[in-house]
Design a protein around this nucleic acid. Sequence first.
DNA 1: TTGACATATTCCTATATCGGAATATTATTC
DNA 2: GAATAATATTCCGATATAGGAATATGTCAA
Lengths: 125, 125
Amino acid sequence: MARAATTTDVFNAIAEPRRREVIGVLADGREYAVGEVVLRLRMSQPAVSKHLGVLRKVGVVSVIKRGQHRMYRLNAAELKPVHDWVKVFERYWTHQLSQIKERAERKALERMVSSDPGDPGDRQR
Amino acid sequence: MARAATTTDVFNAIAEPRRREVIGVLADGREYAVGEVVLRLRMSQPAVSKHLGVLRKVGVVSVIKRGQHRMYRLNAAELKPVHDWVKVFERYWTHQLSQIKERAERKALERMVSSDPGDPGDRQR
DNA sequence: TTGACATATTCCTATATCGGAATATTATTC
DNA sequence: GAATAATATTCCGATATAGGAATATGTCAA
């Protein structure tokens, strides 16, 4: 099978660096016309339109027509799943020192418990 | 050009749902043999090996040999860039009400300032 | 209507997947 | 050494990009 469609979920949508740049432009919460994004990022207009299209399908941005412009606005709430997912690992880099200590203690404990009786791989259940 | 290589950066690495599942298994910080992951996720062994390989190249997991097992451990610190990136948008979904109010105020302000003189798209500079 | 501007869409190509099947590699045990 | 277990790697096919070029669509203005 092929790769999951980027148009399907947020994680894939933000995997593309240019798309993150586009989001970066909209990050201040204001509306931006496609042309403004093009200018700021120096990307081709079709490229920007396509990326915005992907982001729109995922719901990360929304559009309204204003004259001949399409004003795009960030819908940041759609990024929450990413935040929620990665937040779980926050503790691993905050409190670095205590975390390193914890790991050392855990490893010592593991050594005491399983104390390697010729079958180290026996941690399944 | 084609899609960015998943082996290149963390954002792409975690874009794949199965890979996130693998990370989920390792999330408790302990070591896991490939076979354990296979059992827990009911994925094929080659698939797990490949996903772990990608995660390893990106640095999200590390391996050590232990007998005939390869023990994989999460290197959660590598996920920090994702956290840092998405954290910027946190304010958009916390304090929802005040945020909505802010938006309303901002829009009102915009209307007062640019007061739409027939050229709404003139926010570039 | 015509022209100019803003944006979207289509067509194309090169590339990169993911997963399955089969196979290779490495380590252990007898 | 031979058999076995654990894991990695290779080969494959179907699919899905991303970007460029060209074009279509839509909107305003004179």
